[in-house]
Amino acid sequence: MSQRRRTAILISGRGSNMAALLAAAADPAYPAEIALVLSNRADAAGLARAAEAGIPTVVVESRRFGKDRAGFEAAMEAELAAHGIGLIALAGFMRVLTEGFTRRWSGRMLNIHPSLLPAFPGLDTHAHALAAGVRLHGCTVHLVTPGVDEGPIVAQAAVPVLAGDTEETLAHRVLAEEHRLYPAALGWLASGRLRLQEGRAVVDPAPGPSGESLRNPG
């Protein structure tokens, strides 16, 4: 098969979606190789999980840079370059990236958000969904652009909002869909099937066993 794309996962906490990506990438046939887990917090629990899986980890402490966002991102870029990274997957990375950084990684950086965007961008999405009385909630994988949670939508998964749901019960069902959806989307990006077309994310059909397109099966 073609060479796997070297991918960095950026985290700030426990790395739940990171673990799902690591599990997918453990298959040699998966088109992305997780070559680095980078955190802006030294106490992120996901760092230990990544190290246990044999993945190189690095910490670039954001608080050390104060308001110097450019300096923080330059330090991250140096680590990404040192590890030969070609793709980025944000997995609970709690920093807003600058326009310069997002443009440099345009079309090569994914994020997963716990709502059906464009509904409920930002934080506390499950609380907002319950307060709004929606009947469907879910998660979205999108390409990252300068606007927070505004990038082209790659894929979404929905779950019903049930009577008696709390933030915790709703979050649990959404998280199960996140763990299914994110590895699929990263695989599309790493294999070259995901591309931008007129500002929208397009996923090309998977090739058949002999390489032919499955766009028109049968």
Results as ranks from 00 to 15, higher is better:
Pro28Ala: 15
Val58Phe: 09
Gly100Leu: 07
Glu198Val: 02
Glu61Ile: 04
Ala158Ser: 09
Leu196Tyr: 09
Glu79Met: 12
His128Leu: 12
Pro209Met: 07
Gly208Asp: 15
His126Glu: 03
Glu73Thr: 07
Leu130Gly: 06
Leu116Thr: 03
Leu123Gly: 04
Asn40Ser: 14
Asp149Ala: 11
Phe120Gln: 10
Val96Gln: 04
Pro28Val: 13
Arg180Trp: 07
Pro207Thr: 07
Ala201His: 05
Gly71Arg: 08
Arg49Gln: 09
Leu116Arg: 02
Ile9Leu: 03
Ile88Gln: 01
Asp149Asn: 06
Leu194Val: 03
Ala127His: 13
Ala158Met: 06
Leu117Ala: 02
Thr125Ile: 02
Pro146His: 05
Arg103Ala: 10
Gly218Gln: 08
Leu36Gly: 01
Gln197Cys: 08
Phe101Asn: 12
Ala206Trp: 07
Pro207Lys: 10
Leu170Gln: 05
Asp204His: 10
Asn17Arg: 04
Val202Met: 02
Arg69Leu: 13
Leu97Cys: 08
His83Leu: 09
Pro160Asp: 04
Asp68Ile: 00
Glu52Asp: 15
Glu178Asp: 12
Ala32Cys: 11
Pro121Val: 11
Ile88Asn: 05
Arg173His: 09
Ser62His: 15
Leu22Glu: 12
Thr98Lys: 07
Gly71Ile: 06
Leu136Ala: 08
Leu214His: 13
Asp149Met: 06
Tyr30Pro: 09
Glu61Thr: 08
Ala155Met: 03
Ala81Met: 09
Arg63Tyr: 11
Ala23Val: 04
Ala78Ser: 14
Gly199Val: 13
Arg195Gln: 14
Glu167Leu: 04
Gly54Pro: 13
Thr98Trp: 05
His172Phe: 12
Leu47Thr: 09
Glu77Gly: 08
Gln197Met: 05
Gly122Arg: 02
Ser12Phe: 11
Ser106Thr: 08
Thr145Ala: 12
Ala45Leu: 14
Ala155Tyr: 00
Ser39Trp: 03
Leu175Lys: 14
Ile85Gly: 11
Thr125Gln: 05
Lys67Glu: 15
Ser2Tyr: 07
Thr125Tyr: 01
Arg108Cys: 04
Ile153Gly: 01
Phe93Arg: 00
Pro118Arg: 04
Ala78Trp: 13
Glu79Lys: 13
Leu97Asn: 04
Trp188Met: 00
Asn40Lys: 13
Gly199Lys: 11
Pro209Asp: 14
Leu186Asn: 10
Leu117Pro: 04
Val203Leu: 10
Leu10Asp: 10
Ala8Gly: 03
Val96Asn: 01
Ala29Glu: 15
Gly208Gln: 09
Arg69Trp: 04
Arg69Phe: 06
Glu212Tyr: 10
Thr125Ser: 08
His128Ala: 12
Asp165His: 08
Leu90Arg: 00
Ala25Thr: 11
Glu212Leu: 13
Arg173Ile: 07
Lys67Tyr: 08
Leu162Gln: 14
Gly133Glu: 09
His137Ile: 02
Leu90Tyr: 03
